[in-house]
């Protein structure tokens, strides 16, 4: 699984460099992101612009990540492609988890994580 970390002054942007978040990787995805979030600073942004397909197991993983955020830290999503956006919209999770336009990244230095 390819995740790219962009440290920010107040947190981290995690770019998901995977075309699919499906049942085949949902559990590993959840565990990896949660371990990164643990040291991520106050503001965690998940960049999903490379993700072309997400099913309900991928959605469940993102909800679990959101729920695991300690109090006082923010978690948001950027760069939702139409198929990913549909899953959030149909399940109304777009009204629970903050979703912002892709231009909000403010990406600086990149750190690649295999």
């Amino acid at each position: 699984m390819q995740l790219n970390l962009f440290p920010q002054s107040d947190g981290v942007t995690i770019q998901v460099d995977e075309r699919r978040i499906d049942a085949a990787i949902a559990l590993a995805f959840k565990d990896r992101i949660r371990s990164l979030v643990a040291h991520g600073g106050d503001r965690v942004v998940l960049d999903l612009s490379a993700v072309e397909f997400m099913d309900s197991s991928g959605l469940g993983a993102i909800i679990a990540i959101y729920k695991s955020m300690p109090a006082g830290r923010s978690f948001s999503l950027i760069g939702l492609t139409p198929n990913v956006e549909r899953v959030f919209r149909l399940t109304r999770m777009d009204s629970v988890i903050a979703i912002r336009p892709a231009s909000d990244t403010g990406q600086t230095a990149e750190r690649r994580v295999e």
Binding site: D55, S56, S57, L59, G60, A61, I63, A64, Y66, K67, V87, L90, T91, V96
Partner: peptide, 12 residues
């Protein structure tokens, strides 16, 4: 913490 993490499949 009360948010469901599953059960969306048949809904979708």
């Amino acid at each position: 913490l009360a948010l469901p993490e599953g059960g969306f499949g048949w809904f979708l």
